[in-house]
Amino acid sequence: MKIPIIPVIALAAITFAIYHVMTSQGPVSQAEPPIEPARSPYASKLAGAGIVESRTENIEIAADVSGVVSELLISEGQTIDAGQLLLKLDARDVEADLKIHEASLQNVMAQYQRLERMPRAEEVPPAKADVTEAEAEVRQTKDAYERQQKLNREKIGTDEELVTARSQLEVAQAKLEKAQADYQLVIAGTWQQDLLVTESQVQQMRAEIQKTQTELERHEVRAPTSGFLSVNNETKSVWEVLQINRRPGEYVGTPPGEAIVILADAGQRRIRVDIDEHDLPRFEPNQPAIAFPRGDGKTSYPLSFVRVEPYVVPKRSLTGDNADRVDTRVLQVIYEFENSNSRIYVGQQMDVFIDLSEKNKK
């Protein structure tokens, strides 16, 4: 009898497959997570995602005018004082205008001082000499006129000669009056109205210089002043440079497409925690809280409550969880790190747990 080969092979293959499946299956081992997740130390808790920020939040520095960055005076991570110069924009045209206005002011000031010191000592003797000369000429022409009158009475001179002598006397008298008026003008000094006009020109040029200096200062980008931040009645005057988005040679517009420099308070860091709207009935301010950095479930930072921003907003800080919803609304609560260090960075995301044990006991 002939044995069918194909069915036998098929039966053997099925038998081997069943045996392999039965023998290869074993208990599935639990894989260890590559990074230990943060675990709440509280028996009753409320969890939320937080973003580290400074006490002033991020200060996006802008320029008053547009231009090209000519000099950068800071670097990322540097701490700077209030009002410190951050960068300069190209202001060669304004500097040239300033020099022109300063030269014009010097010119007008010189004119004012010249008018104020009038008359010059050297101008008085020539004016007085002109008067003396005119008086002598009057005496001479008057004597000639009187002689001509005498000759006419004696029928020796002509009427034409008499008229000429009288005209010369009148001219000499007019010259004397002019010389005397010029002398009085010289010794009187500068007319007060001329001084007022020149003084107004001086004030105008000073105003032009002040305006140009202000325009020059607008080409300098500086840190905010110390009065900008006051925490616990303490005026803060130190800033930290978080980011620089413009380098020498790059153009700065108004308004800029992005912040030129981002500054933040260099003091204690804070964290902005998003409390899901579904968890709001369980939330209680002033409760203890703790933060864990992402990727480090063993390091924790105690938090102290600062304030609640009483406005529920759409959630923007996503955790990456599959259950994260973009249409969720959250309440933002601000906490401050009690012992923050240099390893906490602005913009860093952390897991935050709020203790509800005390609330449950009540």
Rank of each mutant, 00 (worst) to 15 (best):
M1W: 08
M1F: 09
I3K: 12
I6L: 12
P7G: 05
I9V: 13
L11S: 08
I14V: 07
I18T: 13
M22R: 14
G26S: 11
A31M: 10
P34C: 03
P34V: 00
P37H: 04
A38R: 02
A38L: 01
A38D: 04
R39N: 05
S44A: 11
K45N: 14
A49P: 13
E53F: 10
E53I: 10
T56H: 07
E60R: 15
V65K: 07
V65E: 06
V68C: 07
V68R: 15
V69N: 06
E71V: 01
L73E: 02
S75M: 10
S75V: 12
G77C: 00
T79M: 10
I80L: 09
D81Q: 15
D81M: 11
G83T: 09
A91Q: 09
D93W: 13
D97A: 11
L98V: 06
V108D: 07
Y112F: 12
E116Q: 15
R120Y: 08
V124M: 04
V131E: 06
T132K: 14
A134K: 06
T141M: 03
T141R: 09
D143H: 09
A144R: 05
E146F: 11
N152Y: 12
G157H: 05
D159F: 05
D159H: 11
E161K: 09
S167L: 10
L169P: 00
E170Q: 14
V171S: 13
V171W: 11
A172Q: 05
E177R: 14
A179H: 02
Q180E: 10
Q180H: 07
Y183E: 05
L185P: 04
G189P: 02
L195K: 15
E208D: 15
Q210G: 03
T212I: 08
T214F: 13
E217A: 09
E217Y: 09
P224N: 01
T225N: 13
G227A: 08
F228K: 11
S230C: 09
V241E: 06
N245T: 02
G249Y: 05
A259P: 09
A259W: 08
D265K: 04
R269A: 07
I271M: 03
R272F: 11
D279I: 00
L280N: 05
P285A: 02
N286L: 10
P288L: 00
A289W: 01
P293W: 07
D296S: 07
S300V: 04
Y301A: 01
F305K: 00
Y311D: 15
P314W: 12
L318T: 07
T319F: 12
G320F: 04
D324S: 04
R329H: 11
Q332T: 08
R343N: 08
Y345S: 13
V346C: 09
D351P: 00
F353T: 01
L356A: 04
S357R: 13
N360K: 15
K362C: 06
